[in-house]
Amino acid sequence: MIELRELDKFIESRFQRIFILKGINLTINEGEFVTLMGPSGAGKSTLLNILGLLDDDYKGEYLIDGRPIHRMKERERSSLHKSEFGYIFQAYHLIDELTVFENIETPLLYRKVPSSERKSIIANLLDRFNMVAKKDLFPSQLSGGQQQLVGIARAIAGKPKVLLADEPTGNLHSAQAQEIMEVFQELHREGATIIQATHARSNADYGTRLINLVDGKVTTDETIQHA
């Protein structure tokens, strides 16, 4: 469903182009759980941002279901962005002024989901992540792992086809990280397409495919076999 062809991203400096991504060719099919790995500065986050339509400053082609993104109008792109993608961040990025409930509700508001439907979606999500009792708390009152669970709930509330996660466990200790990854695995089993960027090799084991990025280029692309 996602296809990148000869995708470059660079910064124009005075004497030369500094490439952040160079010649990326990548096809991701529905239902895959892809892990992007690589050292800091390899271009993982940049690639995620481009995939998630947050960054349109690149050369090359990007197609979703065969439709070229780079030729779309702003409006079309932003509606695609709303319907296709959900985001999870390393630093959770919950809105401090909103309660757990309202944080999860926000994407639904922007998608103009009717109130009663919103309530049932959020109720299900809270139930699923065992956070019913915490729904009126503010982010600062939660632990990191709990905050990330809210982040995930918020990301999947809008029923996106693809979940993008940038270092989702980077700020968590290992027990919490494991819990989060298990949630990812479960979502994947239910049919979600997930693309995560991570440092940790252990996280890749939950996925189905591992792509290594070094200096903006894909070095390896392998399928992970599960025992």
């Binding site: 809105i95 401090d96 998608r111």
Partner: peptide, 16 residues
């Protein structure tokens, strides 16, 4: 700006 950026990522249109 953080709040605004987030809202955009979550799908807020400029008008919203």
């Amino acid at each position: 700006n953080k709040e605004v950026g987030l809202r955009k990522v979550l799908g807020a249109m400029r008008g919203q």
